[in-house]
Nucleic acid binder design. Sequence first.
DNA 1: GTCTATACTTCGATAGAC
DNA 2: GTCTATCGAAGTATAGAC
Lengths: 199, 199
Amino acid sequence: MASPRRIGAEDSKTRAILLDAAERLMLEEGYAAVTSRRVAAKAGLKPQLVHYYFRTMDELFLAVYRRRASLRLGHYERALASDQPLRSLWEISTDPRGTAFTMEFAALANHRKAIRAEIAQHAERFRQMQLDATASVLKRAGISPEACPPIAVVLAMTGVSQVLVLEKALGITSGHEETRALVERYLRELEGPARTKPS
Amino acid sequence: MASPRRIGAEDSKTRAILLDAAERLMLEEGYAAVTSRRVAAKAGLKPQLVHYYFRTMDELFLAVYRRRASLRLGHYERALASDQPLRSLWEISTDPRGTAFTMEFAALANHRKAIRAEIAQHAERFRQMQLDATASVLKRAGISPEACPPIAVVLAMTGVSQVLVLEKALGITSGHEETRALVERYLRELEGPARTKPS
DNA sequence: GTCTATACTTCGATAGAC
DNA sequence: GTCTATCGAAGTATAGAC
């Protein structure tokens, strides 16, 4: 009884265009630039259409996030099914676009409860997937979980890749090459040399 | 000849109060919450005073950043002068407040050129300080730079600490304890057990 | 140094016609 | 599904009195 207001269909073409525009805006100028007016302008549509497809701006942010998370889930599944899961995971996590999203949504989550909850939920799931793959690679390599806990490896990979991408975006690159080389050495020890071209 | 507009003194008490308010607002609700009206409300002052002390909101952000960076520089210097520089650096970089700032400003830098430049400049300086300390600790421990480049250790410490703090803020903590334990083990190997209470 | 008053812009959101 | 029209709130910033 609260809301007689109409909302557009989820499979609408226009809705997808608005999501694309919001996504690009977020990457290029940060979440603060994602306003109904600016999204519409970027999409070549009227601002009111944003409100027709999304009840609130939070709903728009959530829709953007969910679409990305769903894509990412696919990437993860393919990575884990490959013959070099750790290397594939490293390539995904050092992709600038993916990490830019992570950062932007993390900042956004600081003051939007609904988004924080959504992120936390997905993050735990991705973490578990990474952990399973990492644990089995380390086991196969004969590295004891006591000497080197797989979960710590996962966190280290996550942290190092995020720093590399974040700093590069800020124009800081000192030490990056050496760090990438070191990671490459570990990957070779565990899974051998790269067998597929990095995309 | 451009601006006949008056600007308040840098050593003003009121100015400091406004900076405090902006800083807290940024930590609690993210940079988007830092508006002239909200900063003034938090400081118990009129919004116009914000514009009296800062020409633009960017100038306010820069002032907040510089004040923090200056404090941080002092922390670093004390850490590097201590008898356990690596452990001290780890404690600094896992401090939630410091890292929350880093994240918030990194996100802000995405669409504010002046701030990006300021951050990059300071970051390189901090990086160099960390590197010097790390290199000398590793050397003393007899670890060759070829086996383990000091710069990679610095980036790893930075990345891992950031992930720990960022995820904790989002409510994600799986694997954190194990990772902290692993870092502790490395710190003990290099510098021995903690000799000072973590603040 | 702080106030009132104000100009102008942009924001999220809704109602109702087509 | 998209449009015109419009609200009230909040944003940055400035001028000028006290």
